[in-house]
Design a protein around this nucleic acid. Structure first.
Lengths: 126, 126
DNA sequence: TTAAAGTACAACCAAATGGTTGCACAAATC
DNA sequence: GATTTGTGCAACCATTTGGTTGTACTTTAA
């Protein structure tokens, strides 16, 4: 067994991928793995809202929603800006775009495999 | 506080989104929130491999890798097919594509907001 | 100036996660 | 037939997660 520090693609140590740290990518996917949090992202992408406005629509405590927002903020999927006594939450489309792009790379990896297979097959017509 | 059964977009109960259940989406994002698992997806998207082949490259027990594969399989990011005494793992590009598409919807939501804002601004030139 | 609204944060808890070891079993090899 | 190889699975453990309640602080409103 080869002890492998970084389980990432074998090229480099801590790869930036698309400017996103390995840990950042973890945080983003983790944050998106919850329906309430996805809903918050959707809502705050459409129109900014305060935490209590958000909390009013979910069947859980204010503190719980507050925690969800914190998770989203840590993942940079959402920004929290003070405005008087409330905190305005608004979604960050840039992070969404980056993750989408990252998944695009996966598809590309797969596609290149198919291309290699095609090339191999066309080399030997029968 | 309005008790809300589904925290999803307010339109329907259990929305199919892109054919993916809410729980399925949870599973997929959760599965992708781990560098080792992302690496396994990449590898098996490039070329299929047995579990022990995979396990040889990570600094953890066979059972741990086995568990990671199970998580990926439950998320339909990977398929496990028996072949003799070994299980061949290969990545599923279709699920990747679906999640990518789902994120595309998020971007679209944001874009439509900007469009509405633009329309609003052009209505009142000053 | 008091009260209410909005937030922050700590303490606590049950359940899930991510790892381990150990054992059982089927398939390939000697 | 005996052994090794590849797998599945259970039991266990530490840590994280996702929720709760309670308390305190700041800003707005009465």
């Amino acid at each position: 067994m080869v002890a492998q520090i970084s389980p990432q693609s074998a090229d480099a140590s801590a790869e930036p991928a698309l400017g996103l740290t390995d840990e950042q990518v973890n945080r983003v996917f983790r944050a998106l793995a919850d329906a309430t949090r996805r809903d918050i992202v959707r809502r705050t992408l459409t129109a900014e809202a305060s935490i209590s406005e958000l909390a009013a629509d979910y069947d859980m405590s204010f503190a719980a929603v507050q925690k969800h927002v914190s998770v989203l903020e840590a993942a940079d999927l959402v920004a929290r800006t003070p405005k008087g006594r409330e905190r305005i939450i608004c979604g960050n489309p840039e992070t969404i775009r980056r993750v989408q792009e990252l998944l695009g790379h996966f598809e590309q990896i797969w596609r290149s495999r198919i291309d290699r297979l095609d090339a191999f097959l066309s080399e030997r017509p029968e």
